[in-house]
């Protein structure tokens, strides 16, 4: 602690907290706290593996570079969750690393995933029958090691209430830390709760259509909004627009 303070050129500790105690020093206290936070964050970044980018600049900025390895990140809401998952899977497989999609809804379109850049040869697709099987499969996958990204896609999965037990998520967090794998949970609502290092909510902002030959309409893109509901990586409450083309 003292060496940390010395390196940050802070004044020597005048009390137990090591921070100025006078009322006028509120601003400097905040500055010191933010300085400490930044220092700790940079220390953490040095010690851990680089995060996995999602391919979306907005989300990567919200997550301090991407999905952190050894941690759980949740993406909830009504739209954009599979798009986000496929983006991250594409990034990982394009880097010649292995990824796993645990699909609780049998929802993957392989042709669409390949079009989005996912190297299917490096992605293990596991179609589970319910939520608890999904967590068990994730446990097995993380236990095997050597996997960079595990996506738990539990949107519209049968029996989602089975996966809210804290003990299961606690175990999964430990597994992820040991395996140094990023875990992305996609669901309708938050499931991992405080075991997730960040929770992103994707809100729908409407569809955009364009005219097509023959007087018809053609779906062009979806406009969404990403909100950082809670995060231990960056400032929560950040809201950014996100466009998804067809």
């Amino acid at each position: 602690m003292f060496s940390q303070l010395a390196r940050l050129d802070l004044p020597p500790p005048s009390n137990l907290t090591g921070l100025p105690a006078d009322a006028d020093g509120a601003g400097s206290r905040q500055a010191a706290i933010s300085q400490l936070r930044q220092a700790c964050r940079s220390e953490l970044r040095v010690r851990t593996e680089p995060p996995i980018p999602t391919g979306c600049a907005v989300i990567d900025a919200a997550l301090q570079g991407g999905l952190p390895r050894g941690q759980i990140v949740e993406a909830v809401g009504k739209v954009g969750r599979l798009s986000l998952a496929l983006g991250a899977l594409a990034q990982v497989t394009q880097r010649r690393e292995l990824a796993v999609l645990i699909d609780g809804a049998d929802a993957l379109d392989p042709a669409g995933a390949a079009a989005q850049g996912v190297d299917l040869r490096r992605m293990l697709w596991t179609r589970v029958k319910n939520g608890s099987d999904a967590l068990r499969a994730a446990d097995l996958v993380l236990g095997a090691g050597g996997i960079s990204l595990v996506v738990l896609y539990l949107v519209a999965a049968p029996d989602p209430h089975q996966v809210t037990r804290a003990a299961l998520w606690s175990r999964l967090t430990l597994r992820a830390q040991r395996a140094k794998a990023a875990v992305l949970v996609c669901a309708d609502r938050p499931l991992a709760q405080s075991f997730a290092v960040a929770t992103l909510a994707v809100h729908d902002e409407g569809m955009r259509w364009q005219d097509a030959p023959g007087g018809r309409l053609q779906l062009r893109e979806r406009v969404a909004r990403i909100e950082v509901m809670r995060s231990r990586l960056g400032a929560p409450g950040d809201v950014q627009p996100w466009c998804l083309s067809k």
Partner: peptide, 24 residues
């Protein structure tokens, strides 16, 4: 059958664009 790890390299990631995925 993932390709051999001998193919592993730094792999330049092509410019990947987020698209609307289909939930089948």
């Amino acid at each position: 059958q993932p390709p051999s790890s001998r193919e592993r390299d730094d792999g330049v990631v092509s410019d990947l664009q987020h698209r609307m995925a289909l939930h089948m």
